[in-house]
């Protein structure tokens, strides 16, 4: 939300009312996106440097500039239900180049976080969670690799949670604090039966 510029109250109110001009906008969406992303999304002046820098744009309908506009206009449902939300590779090129020092990538991440609270999330993201819940690693070890490690003079399992499973209860406790495994299992079951 823009900081008050000290205009007369009536003008402030008029500016505020005009910011959201569509009936389907959620007025506090911009503020929630900004709180979560810790970036000044409302400063976006739609120059399009972000979309021009985006490796996903030339091969899809994903337009980061469009998501920035949705953030500013409070178009929550339109943003969170768009499958293109998940095509950002988080390369941060847009953030790197934004002339207003906004982090569009972090806006996308904030929107993804919000989508998750409505169970909108591709299953592959949740499978990373379940892998880490069971072994501590997103990409766990396997027998071929264990043999190779031994040949290389390394321990069969790396000195991580793989070699020290006694660290796993602590990791599960952290994930359980956020009910992440529980939610991941529930959503995966709903999708895949």
């Amino acid at each position: 939300m823009a900081k008050s510029k000290g205009y007369p109250e009536a003008l402030e109110k008029k500016l505020h009312d005009q910011r959201y001009y569509r009936e389907d906008s959620t007025p506090d969406f911009t503020k929630r996106v900004e709180d979560k992303s810790r970036t000044i999304a409302h400063m976006c002046f739609q120059c399009g440097t972000c979309t021009g820098s985006c490796p996903s744009a030339p091969r899809s309908t994903y337009r980061i500039r469009k998501f920035m506009r949705r953030a500013v206009l409070g178009l929550e449902s339109e943003a969170l239900n768009d499958p293109d939300l998940w095509l950002c590779t988080t390369c941060y090129s847009c953030t790197d180049r934004c002339p207003r020092d906004i982090a569009p990538t972090d806006v996308i991440m904030a929107m993804r976080n919000m989508a998750f609270t409505h169970d909108i999330i591709p299953v592959n993201f949740l499978k990373t969670v379940t892998a880490i819940y069971s072994s501590g690693h997103g990409v766990p070890n396997n027998d071929v690799n264990r043999a190779a490690r031994e040949r290389l003079g390394l321990t069969r399992d790396p000195p991580t949670t793989h070699m020290y499973p006694e660290y796993m209860p602590g990791i599960r406790k952290i994930l359980d604090h956020y009910h992440l495994k529980e939610n991941a299992d529930r959503i995966i079951k709903e999708r895949e039966g």
């Binding site: 988080t90 976080n113 880490i132 997103g138 991580t160 949670t161 006694e166 660290y167 956020y178």
Partner: peptide
């Protein structure tokens, strides 16, 4: 020297997309 008992960082794409707070807590561990 080995950082004993380390876990996934956690994967910034996956965890960052799901819940930033979990991302912070897991990396902090």
């Amino acid at each position: 020297v080995p950082l004993k008992g380390a876990s996934c960082c956690p994967a910034p794409g996956a965890f960052g997309s799901i819940d930033m707070n979990v991302f912070y807590a897991m990396a902090a561990r």
